[in-house]
Structure formats: C-alpha cells, structure tokens
Design a protein around this nucleic acid. Structure first.
Length: 204
DNA sequence: CTGCCGATTTAC
DNA sequence: TAAATCGGCAGA
C-alpha cells in the first residue's frame, strides 16, 4: 500500500523507531523481491548520543549521510565483514537515524536463504530459519544490502518501507502494537548513552 | 602514513 | 570466550 516517503521519517527518532516495528521492509533485486517484517530497531541521535557516529556534529565522509534528507538509506560496514542498515530521521541537516536490527522474512524466503546461506529455504535447518535475519548484519546479508545502497534516496524502488502489501496477503500493521523497550546493544563505549532506552522490539 | 577500534557474527 | 577482517578515523 502506501510506501513510506520522506515525511514519515521527518520527526522524532525514538518515535520513528517504535513506529517502524511491524512494518515491511521491501527489497527489490531485479525480478526478485524480499519482504522483511521489521521486529527490532534502535534510535541514534547525533545531538545528544555518544553512540551515534555523528555525535556532537561530527562531519566526515561517512557521517555525511546521517545529515541527509529523512528517509535516506545509511549503510555502513562494521567489523570489516558485516553491514548495518539505517534509515535517516529528522530534518535534513540534523544527524539521526534508526538502525534496523532485525526482522522476519515474510516473502522471498528462497532468495533470502540463498543470499544468507547459499541454499534454498527448504534446505535450511530450523535454527537457520530462525536466524535468517534476526540481527543487523544477518538482515543485511539476507537482503543483499551493502554500502552500494548508502545514500539511496527515500522510498527508492530498490529498498523501501511500506504499511501493507495486500497483493502478497501482508496486512497493514495494527494501529497499536505492543513492543518491548530496552538499552541498545554493543555500544559499551558510549558512556552515559549506554543507558538510553532506545532499543525496541516485538514479541517473538 | 600508522595504529586502533568497531551500532556483529560465528566458531571453538 | 575469542577470532575473523578491514574501513573509518584520529593523531603523528
């Protein structure tokens, strides 16, 4: 249905992170389409957040994307071998984004399974099926997301978020959807920001 | 140019 | 619990 455009991301980052839960991340790879229902996300806010790459107005080649128009795709490499997907939030010129930390593949399981494990979905063990995209690096692997997508504009055909996909029998997200709140993962260096309750996830 | 480190994942 | 593996970044 309605593809989320720049306006959806033009607001408070924490609120946006919560609101992305349960929505569909759509990845188009030529003929193939993968749809991932977002189940986990974190907020990063440059102005006050030592865990944010652009904390304190830091401007480098990499962080430039965080200041881009709301809805812009921010992808960076981590630990030399994984990628993390973010969606930029707040007004252009304000550094903030939502990290997509996990989701469940609800369409295109074979394509995702091939990308992640090199075999079709029906060859996966139950453990592999459950771990297809339940982490930021795994999600990017399963959706073929890497730095080539960095700076992709909002709501691009190649990657976008949407409310519902009726043609695929994927219903609209309920207006209210209960979620968990907690501290963010893997930012032990971020001093007081380690305690910010900016991680949100849906019940399994 | 050098050296350190990471918004992770996986194997041991 | 520790290795894998390399781009980004600060400092020299």
């Amino acid at each position: 249905m309605a593809r989320l455009s720049s306006g959806f991301f033009l607001r408070d980052t924490v609120e946006t992170a919560q609101d992305l839960l349960g929505r569909y991340l759509v990845r188009q790879l030529g003929q193939d389409i993968i749809v991932c229902r977002i189940t986990e996300a974190e907020a990063y806010v440059g102005a006050i957040d030592k865990a944010c790459h652009a904390y304190g107005g830091k401007m480098t080649e990499r962080t430039r994307t965080l200041y881009a128009a709301p809805g812009t795709v921010y992808v960076y490499m981590i630990y030399g071998m994984y990628h993390c997907l973010n969606l930029v939030t707040e007004a252009e010129g304000v550094a903030a984004a939502v990290l997509i930390r996990g989701g469940e593949i609800v369409y295109g399981q074979d394509t995702a399974a091939m990308l992640r494990f090199g075999v079709p979905y029906n060859r996966l063990t139950s453990v592999q099926r459950r771990s297809l995209s339940n982490g930021p690096g795994k999600l990017c692997k399963a959706l073929n997301i890497d730095r080539a997508l960095n700076n992709l504009p909002p709501a691009d055909d190649a990657l976008y978020v949407t409310d519902a996909l009726p043609e695929l029998s994927l219903p609209e997200r309920p207006v209210t959807l209960p979620f968990h709140t907690g501290k963010r993962i893997g930012i032990d260096y971020a001093q007081e920001a380690v305690d910010f309750p900016w991680r949100f996830w849906l019940e399994h």
